[in-house]
Simulated assay, not measured.
Amino acid sequence: MTSKTADVWLPFPAEEIAGLPDTFRYRQWDGEDDFPADPAACVFYVTPYMKSPEVTLRPLADMPDLAVVQTLTAGIDHVLGGLDRLRPGVRLCNARGVHEASTAELALTLTLASLRGIPGMVRGQDREEWRSGFYEALADKSVLIVGYGSIGAAIEDRLAPFECARVTRVARSERTTTRGRVHALVDLPRLLPEADVVILSTPLTDGTRGLADQAFLGRMKDGALLVNVARGPVVDTAALLGEVESGRLCAALDVTDPEPLPPGHPLWHAPNVLITPHVGGSSTAFAPRAKRLVARQLTRFAAGEPVENTVLTTG
C-alpha cells in the first residue's frame, strides 16, 4: 500500500509519533461522535484505547478498503464482534510488546499489597490506627500463572527475585520453554490445590470465559489469593463472592464483571478483596510503547512487508 490518497486513523496526533511514513494521510479519531474523514478512505485503523466495543466497531462497516485493524490492547475480545463487517483478508493485530511490563508490574503490586495487608493499613492510616502484626509474605509461596503468553512470562520475570517456592505455568496447550514446562488448561484441577497465589493473565476467549468458576475456585486451597489482570468475565463473579464472603479465599482484581463495577455492587465491600479500576496497561509506559508499535507497523505496511502481531485474518 503506497497511495497518498489512503487514510490511516490514529487515536493520537500523528505529529506525536516519530518515524511515521509519509505515504498516508493521517486522521485522528479517538471515539468522538464525528468521524475525522470519510471512513471509506481508511486502509489502516488503529483503534481507540479503552473505549467500548460499540465505539470501537462503529466505523468498520464503512471501511471497504480496510487492510489492517491494529488494537492498542493485548486482548482483542472487544473487536471480535465486528469482524463480520469486514471484507476477507483484513489482518487483525494486537499490541503485543506494549503492555507486558505495566501489566506485570500491577500483577506483582496486587499480589504484594494483598498478602502484606496494605489495603487495611491504608484504612488504618485514614483512621490514625497503628495496625501492627504479622502478615503474609510472597517468599516461600507457590504461584500459579494461568495464561502464559508474553504477559504471563513478564509476570514470572518479576516474581524471580521474590524467592517463591515454585512458579507453575499454564496455557491453552502444553509446551516447554527455557524456564521449563508449561502445563495445559486440562491440568488445572490437579495444580490449583497446590497454589498459594493464582494469577490470571489469560485472554478472554470462548474457552476462558467463566474459567474461574465454582469448580475452579473450590479447588483452590483455603486462604489462597486469586489475582485477575486478565478480563473480568474470566471469573464467575457470583462464585467468587461466595468464596471471599465466607473468608475462604482472597482476591485482587484489576478487572471485574460487570465493568466498570457499579455503585452498590457487593464486590466493593466484600472482605479480603482489593480492586483497581482496570489500570494494568494504563501507565506512563503505554504511550511511548504504543507509538513505537504504530510507527513500526505502518513502516512495514507502507513497504509492503508483513505486519507484526497478526492474531487473525478475516476470511
Rank of each mutant, 00 (worst) to 15 (best):
V311L: 07
A165N: 08
G218N: 08
L144C: 04
M220R: 12
T71W: 10
K51H: 15
R209Q: 10
A74H: 14
V55D: 03
K141S: 00
P59N: 09
D254L: 02
E156V: 00
A287V: 14
A101Y: 09
A101I: 14
G242A: 15
G117D: 04
E100L: 04
P189R: 03
V182M: 12
L106T: 00
T103G: 07
L211Y: 10
G304A: 13
S52R: 11
G232N: 12
Q125K: 13
R300N: 05
A171G: 12
R127P: 09
I17E: 10
G97K: 12
R172K: 05
L10W: 13
D33F: 08
V244L: 04
R123V: 08
A303R: 10
E259S: 15
L204S: 01
P266L: 12
M1Y: 14
A18F: 07
L110R: 06
V235M: 11
A40W: 07
L57W: 11
A295P: 04
N94H: 05
R219L: 13
L204Y: 05
T208N: 02
D196H: 14
G75N: 03
T299G: 14
D22M: 10
R248A: 01
V255T: 14
T276S: 14
R25I: 00
P39V: 01
A230G: 15
A184W: 09
V227G: 12
R300Q: 03
S114H: 01
G247Y: 14
S102R: 00
A139E: 02
V79E: 02
G218S: 11
T299L: 09
A290S: 09
L185I: 13
N309T: 01
P21F: 00
G180F: 10
G180E: 02
A41K: 13
I151N: 07
P59Y: 07
V227F: 07
I145C: 02
T299K: 05
A290G: 03
A224Q: 07
R209S: 14
D196I: 00
P266A: 07
P233W: 05
V167I: 15
W268L: 10
T103S: 04
G149S: 07
R27Y: 02
P233Q: 14
T111R: 02
D257Y: 13
V227I: 10
F216N: 05
S150M: 12
S150C: 11
L92G: 08
R292M: 15
T73F: 06
E194A: 06
G281H: 06
A101G: 09
S173P: 07
A230I: 05
A252W: 03
V146D: 04
F301W: 10
G242K: 15
V186F: 08
V197P: 02
V186N: 15
G97S: 06
R91A: 14
E54S: 10
Y135R: 09
T310Q: 08
T73D: 06
M220D: 09
V198P: 00
P161G: 00
F216K: 13
L80W: 07
R190F: 07
P277A: 08
D157K: 00
